[in-house]
């Protein structure tokens, strides 16, 4: 590409098209690497970086020059394919790329191995792990996980993203992104609206009488431990969560309802609940890395239901 003449640049700037003059002046001279992007995130996230964290590179070289950034709740094969199509090679994912918390490009030792059960046996080669790794390498992708520190940012960007996506930005209680007061609505109507808005397939599950009217909402995306439910459910009419342990929050909600509490618990699924928060991440990265394009690519609801 020929460098723009000064006259052309002024003309572009006058129409407002040159939204990122920084990019023009820096073109070629100091390309942004994946590591540069991560450094800017670390500097600006407003959370002290933890020595033990899952927020690390999972695949690809940090020195790779970033052609574009994709944010997503989960770097599935489909998301990676769409990233390549969009010309982006840096994928920032909230959830693991390689299925488990270990997030390593080779399968972890199978269960049944380990202390007390004999030496840990290496897992046999795995077609899915291998194909994903090859796809990443072939397309020169870099995958970096952004979970621990993104969740700790204030105000909570995942709760903010979910409430914004549901159209509740102006309805926060005391500026808490995790609490909103909405116009009173029947629980079943609320659930239908959420399903449509978030483009959910079959992942949403609900505890509580569909006919109760609800107004105050606790928004707890991601994975919700019992402590958070104990704290939140008594204070609101309905909790919208991502993923919980069924023997914890689901049974707590069930008992709450049996005891006469006119309350509900809506489970969206972990990925679906985190997706809007990664849209917020994309918006933030556009201010942080204006040189290149950042795109949010949702992984979508993993679940469907028969019938």
């Amino acid at each position: 590409m020929n460098p723009l003449s000064r006259r052309e640049f002024v003309a572009l700037a006058a129409t407002g098209a040159a939204a990122a003059p920084f990019a023009l002046s820096n073109a070629g001279a100091s390309a942004v690497t994946a590591q540069d992007v991560v450094d800017r995130i670390r500097k600006n996230v407003g959370v002290e970086w933890r020595p033990e964290t899952v927020d690390t590179f999972k695949s690809g070289s940090p020195d790779t020059v970033a052609t574009g950034i994709v944010t997503t709740a989960m770097a599935t094969m489909e998301v990676l394919k769409q990233a390549v199509k969009a010309g982006a090679n840096l994928v920032i994912t909230c959830e693991p790329t390689f299925y488990g918390r270990a997030d390593s490009a080779t399968p972890p030792p199978r269960r049944g191995a380990g202390p007390g059960r004999g030496p840990a046996a290496a897992a046999p080669p795995d077609r899915v792990f291998a194909a994903k790794g090859e796809f990443i390498a072939r397309n020169n992708l870099v995958v970096w996980r952004f979970s621990d520190h993104w969740r700790l940012r204030k105000p909570d960007p995942l709760a903010q993203g979910l409430t914004d996506a549901l159209g509740w930005s102006g309805l926060r209680i005391a500026d808490d992104p995790a609490r909103v007061s909405i116009p009173a609505v029947r629980l079943d109507a609320l659930v239908s609206r959420i399903k449509k808005t978030l483009d959910a397939r079959g992942g949403i599950r609900v505890v509580g009488d569909p006919q109760i009217r609800v107004q105050t909402v606790g928004v707890l995306p991601g994975s919700t431990p019992i402590h958070a439910s104990l704290k939140t459910l008594p204070a609101v009419d309905v909790v919208i969560a991502g993923e919980v342990r069924e023997w914890e929050s689901v049974e707590y909600a069930r008992d709450t309802v049996t005891a006469g509490g006119r309350k509900g618990l809506i489970l969206l699924g972990r990925v679906l609940s985190e997706e809007p928060g990664m849209n917020v991440c994309a918006q933030w990265l556009r201010t942080l890395v204006p040189e290149i394009t950042t795109t949010w690519i949702p992984a979508g609801d993993p679940y469907w239901r028969p019938l």
């Binding site: 899952v54 599935t76 094969m77 299925y99 488990g100 918390r101 269960r111 194909a131 979970s147 992984a299």
Partner: peptide, 20 residues
Amino acid sequence: QQESDGMLDSPAYVLDAVSL
């Protein structure tokens, strides 16, 4: 089953297997 980020296999594996 935990949707992702656990010790064991996750539904995410199935999604990718299907893609492949």
